Amino acid sequence: MTKPSNLVLLIDDEPKIRRFLRAGFEIHGFSVVEAENAAGGLKVATFNSPDLVILDLGLPDLHGSEALERLRAWSNVPVIVLSVESNEDEKVRLLQSGADDYVVKPFGMAELLARSDAALRRYFKSATENPVVTVGPLAVDLASRTVSLNNSRIKLTRKEYRLLHILAMHVGLVVTHDQLLKDIWTGNQRDNIQYLRILVRKLRQKIEADPNQPRLLITESGVGYRLENRLEPSVVD
């Protein structure tokens, strides 16, 4: 299943562990990107759209379980958790929170690669079964990361696609301002809702027939946004 195009994101604060993992994955045909903390890892995941995430629980800025929760708010990328703890209750909790697998340190690279291949097989099988979210004339292909409007491909910036991807993963449901800010931006930008409003306006310019009367990207005033296929105007924000 492993192909050179498969990109793995390593989120671990120990340089030696990252070097060990990078060497093992690259030898087996993966491309690799790294992050030393949760904030960096979420940022890399946003801009690079990895096919697999290896997530250490003991991160310096945020516990890995919280990083997993934030990632799962907008992405179904396979996540394998690394931990020095072998507690069964902890494993169950993380698997219920969205982890695809749990590996206890120390571990062998052969075991991790086998688990990675299994996670990728499950992911790609699921993606091919139902990879497209269709909302009226809009189609978001989560597998190929492409967007079409009235059967014609449209080009989005990375942030525009990330916003649309998050909403497509929760189609019909409201995603809060706070969650979108946390998952798309970093640093002080996370606290400025104006960045989100500007991004929403730009995306509406590309996907709405009339951006001033949106029918796809709907505002829930004071709460957030949702992607909806009900063809009725909403409040503009």
Rank of each mutant, 00 (worst) to 15 (best):
R70T: 02
G98A: 05
S152Q: 14
K91R: 15
Y195G: 00
V147R: 08
R153T: 10
Q205N: 12
S75G: 05
D101F: 06
E160R: 04
R122L: 11
Y161V: 03
K155H: 12
Q189F: 00
L94M: 12
E90R: 14
I154A: 02
A114W: 03
G172I: 08
S148W: 08
F107H: 08
K105N: 02
R93G: 00
D117P: 00
H165E: 14
V135S: 07
V132G: 07
V103Y: 08
V103P: 09
S86N: 15
I193A: 11
A119C: 11
S83A: 14
I207V: 15
K155T: 15
L94S: 10
R162T: 08
L71C: 04
K125D: 11
Y102A: 06
W185S: 03
P78K: 08
L181T: 04
K202P: 00
P106S: 09
G136N: 13
L181M: 13
K159N: 11
A118V: 03
P131Y: 03
S83E: 11
S97C: 07
Q96I: 02
V104E: 06
D178I: 00
P106L: 07
I184V: 07
R70D: 01
Y195T: 01
V140R: 06
V174L: 00
S86Y: 03
L164N: 09
N76Y: 10
L112K: 05
L156Y: 04
E85H: 13
L203F: 08
V132I: 15
R158T: 14
L113N: 06
L120C: 11
V77I: 13
E85W: 02
M169V: 06
E129G: 03
L181W: 01
D100I: 02
D191N: 13
R145G: 01
V135A: 08
L120M: 15
D100N: 15
H165R: 11
K105E: 04
L82W: 10
Y195W: 07
D117R: 14
R158N: 14
T134I: 13
R122M: 07
A143S: 12
L142D: 04
S97F: 05
D89A: 15
N151K: 13
L94A: 09
A139V: 08
Q189K: 14
L173N: 13
A209Q: 06
E208D: 01
R158K: 14
V104P: 09
R121P: 00
T134L: 05
D89R: 13
E90C: 02
G98T: 02
S116K: 06
K206C: 07
Y123G: 07
L95D: 03
L156V: 07
H170N: 15
S126T: 11
K125H: 10
G172S: 08
K202W: 01
T128P: 00
E85F: 04
V200M: 04
T134H: 10
R162E: 06
K202L: 10
L138W: 10
K155R: 11
S116C: 11
L149I: 12
Q96N: 15
I193G: 01
Q179H: 10
L120I: 12
L167A: 05
Q96V: 05
A119W: 02
R162N: 03
V84K: 13
L164M: 10
L167H: 03
F107E: 06
T146V: 09
Q189N: 09
L167I: 01
S97E: 13
M169S: 14
W74G: 15
L94R: 09
V133F: 00
Q189G: 00
P131R: 13
